[in-house]
Design a protein around this nucleic acid. Structure first.
Length: 528
RNA sequence: GGGCCGCUAGCUCAGUAGGUAGAGCAACGCCCUUUUAAGGCGUGGGUCAAUGGUUCGAAUCCAUUGCGGCUCACCA
């Protein structure tokens, strides 16, 4: 295999590291996962897309990859999320596995399933399609019976490893298992003893149930997180799995999982890196899931087209934190992406620039959903779209007519961008940014006679020349009107904007008039 | 207390598998008789937090220190 690095992009470097440290393999296993105990937010998404980008880097090197995503839906329901209705009703299910908690929004069979389905439905939109593993099903099917027995056999080793980083040591009789009572489904149980093989006896402090179960047939037993994680590395032969900084610290769960993997499950910890959290800038209070104080991927996709979402993460090294912006920064992000795209189709000859270009080009490739375009797609500045859309009250088809002709493949992407632009205008645009055309039936504010006269001259000029002469020439003629009427340009502009959009300010006027066109302009430029 | 991340232009940040310090905004200047959220062109601006080390060469690698942030030592 050709092992020359594809680029100095972080995803390629990670892929190289995986191949180097794990050796040549038939296929590589890359893993990600989370407990679906709430809306999967954009910080969680950083892990998923980080893995996806590395998966893609491996595949681009000709390697086969299995990309698994673990839903840890056999974890305990520990607290009722603040953004959920029917808090008291849900509280009954505390200490049960989250897969047993009903979906109070009534859509799915469980609270966990709802969070899972929400994400699974949306990930393909950004080009991510992992193989999902549902841990509740796995445990209930006694899938991990052997590994659980191993944990029991080595419980003293495990206890020592965990105690190395604990303030309060685990008790002598601690067992590396947690049991959901088969009567009340709560994990308020204590393992009393085992038969040395697969049988264990537990007692439930909630309902008093005492029972002996067999690991090979019961679905009630699971491993606690710090043991569950290394067990799965072993079970799935995981080669790569990043983790957040909460795990990646000395004495944190990755650290203990590494030692448990080595000493108990006789496998090496996967290649990993730590990713930083994602901050949110702007947009406070208006994001759909903001009541739960999290921003989800679907929130982000409402304002960022899928390629740009990928670009945000592909273009930022995982171990640095960054903010996703919902304020005016959003324009810059789109412009940066467009610039990257133009650069991709404009390879430099200068060898010095080539190095930077290669990395940028790689970022562009990794930002694409599936196929990389062969020629440069049409671009429309999102700023421009926000003006066009406001002129047409959000009608995307009419807004895009201004840009004809568009190739079919471009229309799809530009329509998505236009949807995002309109969502942004509606939800986050600052007041001075917004406008809608004045209806000709709405009476305009009265104008001083000399202003009214000037406006009528502009109307006449528009009727004769708008769209027929270059914007520059039109501009000169308009300024002549201002001058011959001895007006301050500011008051003239104010008057025109009042007639057009009933505001004192607006989009750059000459360009705005041209976009509007004679038919729209004439009825509006009629002073009271 | 341990760990991790950050400290680069006035602001927000790129740039770290070593090779002459960058962008956007802001500022300043000029131009379009030219206003705006959004014109064009140009200019200035930095002991890359500090000190020491490795090197022909360090923003980049190493060590120490300072400041800021996050995180672990419950659970996951």
């Amino acid at each position: 295999m050709n092992d020359k690095p594809l680029s100095s992009h972080w995803a390629d470097i990670s892929a190289d590291t995986i191949i180097r440290e794990r050796g040549e393999k038939e296929h590589y296993v890359c893993a990600s996962g989370i407990t679906p105990s709430g809306t999967v937010h954009i910080g969680n998404f950083r892990e998923i897309i980080s893995v996806e980008l590395v998966v893609r880097a491996l595949r681009d090197r000709g390697r086969k990859v299995r990309f698994i995503y673990s839903w840890d839906d056999y974890d305990v329901f520990r607290k009722v999320p603040a953004n959920m209705p029917r808090q008291e009703y849900l509280a009954q299910y505390l200490r049960q596995p989250i897969t047993c908690v009903p979906d109070v929004l009534g859509r799915e069979e469980s609270y966990a399933a709802r969070n899972e389905k929400n994400l699974e439905a949306i990930l393909p939109k950004v080009g991510i399609e992992p193989e999902y593993i549902y841990q509740a099903s796995r445990y209930r099917a006694s899938h991990y019976a052997e590994e659980m027995k191993t944990a029991l056999d080595k419980k003293d080793t495990i206890r020592q490893l965990l105690n190395a980083h604990r303030t309060a040591p685990l008790p002598e009789d601690w067992q590396p298992l947690s049991v959901f009572c088969t009567q009340c489904h709560r994990d308020t149980t204590e393992v009393k003893n085992r038969d040395g093989e697969y049988g264990i006896r537990y007692e439930c402090s909630s309902c008093g149930n005492t029972e002996t179960v067999d690991l090979r047939s019961t679905g009630a037993v699971k491993l606690p997180w710090r043991i569950d994680w290394p067990m799965r590395w072993h079970h799935e032969k995981v080669d790569f799995e990043p983790a957040g900084k909460d795990h990646h610290t000395e004495g944190g769960s990755f650290d203990t999982a590494r030692t448990i993997a080595g000493e108990v499950y006789k496998c090496e910890a996967p290649v990993t890196f730590q990713y930083e959290f994602v901050r949110v800038k702007g947009g406070s209070g208006k994001l759909s899931s903001s009541s739960g104080e999290v921003v989800s991927l679907s929130d982000v996709l409402r304002y960022y087209q899928p390629e740009v979402v990928r670009y945000l993460f592909a273009g930022t090294r995982p171990n640095t934190d960054f903010a996703i912006s919902f304020d005016l920064d959003i324009f810059k992000i789109y412009e940066d992406y467009d610039k990257l795209e133009r650069s991709y189709f404009n390879k430099p000859d200068n060898p010095k620039k080539l190095n930077k270009w290669q990395k940028d080009a790689r970022t562009y490739e990794l930002s694409q959903i599936s196929h990389i375009p062969q020629t440069q797609p049409a671009q429309i500045q999102i700023r421009h779209l926000t003006v066009l859309l406001q002129i047409h009250s959000g009608n995307i088809g009419k807004a895009l007519e201004h840009i004809n002709p568009l190739a079919p493949r471009d229309i799809l992407k530009l329509t998505k961008r236009a949807e995002c632009a309109w969502n942004w205008v509606c939800d986050f645009a600052p007041e001075e940014f917004r406008f809608s055309l004045r209806s000709p039936e709405t009476p305009p504010i009265p104008l001083a006679p000399e202003l009214a006269a000037a406006v009528l001259q502009l109307r006449h000029l528009s009727e004769q020349q708008l769209g027929k002469i270059p914007e520059k020439d039109f501009s000169k003629l308009m300024y002549q009107i201002i001058q011959t009427n001895q007006l301050e340009s500011a008051e003239f502009f104010r008057a025109v904007y009042q007639l057009l959009i009933a505001k004192d300010e607006g989009p750059r006027l000459i360009n705005f008039l041209h976009i509007l066109g004679t038919e729209t302009v004439l009825p509006l430029l009629s002073p009271a």
